[in-house]
Nucleic acid binder design. Structure first.
Lengths: 140, 140
DNA sequence: ATTCTAGTTGAAACTAATTGCGATTACAAA
DNA sequence: TTTGTAATCGCAATTAGTTTCAACTAGAAT
């Protein structure tokens, strides 16, 4: 369990401790290809290492968010989900009627980001947004 | 306690029951000039009418959301906040460093809304957005 | 190898919000 | 005015996430 990835290296360089719990959590996040919840991370870890507390998972995610190493998103399923920031940014259009999710490239929000910077001198964190509404099939 | 407002009228016309609990909740929402939380609504009501349960407040807010009579927003304070939809739409830029909140007119997101409609035929609900980032004073 | 200590963890308590269910009630129809 | 019933409510349990605090430990310093 020493295959260090991008996030692990970053944490180490920044002087954070690499505890076994953190290594496990980082490994699960880096090896998941879609958005994963805290609960799912915890379940995967507990299977092999029953002594990891869910609050440690939340605390690690909090740390990774603060360091911009993961982005979080609320897709409307009652749980916040996480994604490694270095695996590319994107957004989601979520239909509130049928639940369909349309993926959107980061570039779709670039004009908005530019406008906010120009007019308000505000650097918006628009790396992973969920936009709710109605898809083409659910419009009345 | 029968001064019916805009939301009350709407609910009535749609065939929803006007229970005393609902009337109280609607009155508090319509008379609050800024964003209010479920907890705050409940506290205000309980002062005069101690038998209203907090879950009724949440359920009423859920209904009003579904009917687009209120918009909700997460300003980052650990509670979701609510605003009557008929009192005008707007957005907020929230600085994650100092907490400053810059208010934004609805029109700021009109170009994005148009793009999503044109390119994805998606009707985005962009009536009350919180955009996190860094304000001009907190940029390094 | 041993010691030191700030960073980290587990456990339990707590907060915001949601849900299941039996009891209550607004209001339409008799 | 009374009745019937689906909508609504209160209560208690549940879920997702956060916080507090005492105990533990990674990793630097000796």
């Amino acid at each position: 369990m020493n295959q260090s990835g991008y996030i692990t290296d970053k944490l180490s360089k920044l002087g954070y401790r690499l505890t076994p719990q953190r290594m496990m959590i980082l490994s699960v996040i880096e090896n998941s290809d879609n958005h994963i919840s805290a609960e799912e991370i915890h379940t995967q870890i507990v299977a092999k290492y029953p002594n990891v507390n869910i609050s440690t998972v939340y605390r690690t995610l909090e740390l990774l968010k603060r360091l911009s190493l993961v982005t979080e998103i609320n897709l409307g399923g009652g749980q916040v989900r996480y994604h490694p920031a270095n695996k590319g940014h994107h957004h989601h259009l979520i239909c509130q009627e049928c639940g369909t999710i349309i993926d959107l490239d980061e570039s779709a929000l670039a004009p908005l980001k530019d406008t906010l910077l120009r007019e308000y001198k505000f650097i918006a964190d628009l790396r992973h947004l969920a936009i709710f509404g109605r898809c083409v099939n659910c419009q009345r």
